[in-house]
Amino acid sequence: MSASRTALVTGATGFVGRHLVPALQAEGWTVRALTRRPAAYDGPGEVVGGDVSDPASVVEALRGVDVAFYLVHSLDHTDYAERDAAAARAFSAAAEAAGVGQIVYLGGLGADGDQLSEHLRSRREVEHLLARTSVPVTALRAAIVVGAGGISWEITRQLVKNLPAMIVPRWVSTRTQPIALDDAVRYLVGVAGNPAAHGRTFEIGGPDTLTYEEMLQLAAEQMLGHRLPIVRVPLLTPRLSSYWLALVTDIDTRTGRNLIDSLGTEVVVTDTSIRDIVPGTPTSYAEAVRRALAQPRG
């Protein structure tokens, strides 16, 4: 790959972004790391200041960019859907004006339709809004990304660590298809600058389809050496579940509520065509957990 290619990573200080920047550099990309607080950034790449919701603030950051990675969200706000939609419109327009060659977006799995939660509908809306300009968009849809510091993984890790037994809601029986952080980053890098991925949507996941209860128990086996007693409570609502999470983890109530709303939606891979574009063997959930436990939460 030519070293002259330039990538912009939005959300460069976030869970996925801070791993994506060095991975792109390792493949020869010149990387700009976009953040609202450039003075506080101490990661790799060229740091640039900007806010995706303010087109004027990202004009210089987007100049000469071949691929822009869109990894931002506003889950910690009550009006996150409106904020994220406005930011997607602003960013895609700025990218088109700057002549960006491709936008790569990491969104959420789940079949289109009324069954999607508000959170997943918002992720899908952002995907569609980014694609409304002439800039080709590649969308990768994922369920839980398993890695140290990821919100969904931290919920799993802290529940297992802090509770000798669990009283859980019905959503623990919902099926999902988690993906290792290393695989998510590998797919993001693999589609960047790849014409075969332009204008396409790919579903990405690991090889294991599990319920949330199975994920908790497999994590418990690796962390504690045994499984946990689990009791299901049918009437534990999303609101009560979010308060429960806030009590036993360091995840704030608002973010927890927005995530929990999605846990009743089955999110599994139905199309594996990403493997034709980015070959490789996906990492098992058990191995993803081992790697996450070995990494600093950073």
Rank of each mutant, 00 (worst) to 15 (best):
P207I: 03
A95S: 05
T253F: 08
Y41T: 04
I204V: 12
V233A: 13
S134E: 08
Q25S: 11
R5Y: 09
Y70A: 06
A111C: 13
V104W: 01
A148F: 08
R200A: 13
D252I: 10
N162F: 09
R132P: 04
W29I: 03
R175K: 15
A61Q: 05
V47F: 00
R254G: 03
F202T: 03
L236H: 11
R32C: 02
L109K: 00
D54G: 02
R232D: 06
I277Y: 07
E46V: 07
R291K: 10
P178V: 10
H226V: 06
L245N: 01
V31A: 06
G206P: 02
R175T: 12
I167W: 15
G17D: 03
G99K: 08
Q217C: 07
L240W: 12
V65R: 00
S53T: 10
D276M: 12
S262M: 05
R291H: 10
L24V: 02
G49K: 02
A85M: 02
A93T: 12
S92F: 01
G199M: 07
V67W: 03
D51F: 07
T237G: 09
P22K: 04
A97R: 14
T156F: 11
R186D: 11
V248A: 06
Y285W: 12
I144Y: 08
G108F: 01
L224K: 15
D54R: 03
A294I: 11
L24N: 02
D271F: 14
E266G: 04
A246I: 02
V233S: 12
V135A: 06
L181M: 12
A192I: 01
D112I: 13
A196T: 15
R89V: 10
R63W: 10
R297K: 13
T237S: 15
V104I: 13
S57W: 09
F202A: 05
D250L: 13
D114N: 14
G28Q: 08
V100C: 05
R290F: 04
S152K: 01
I103M: 03
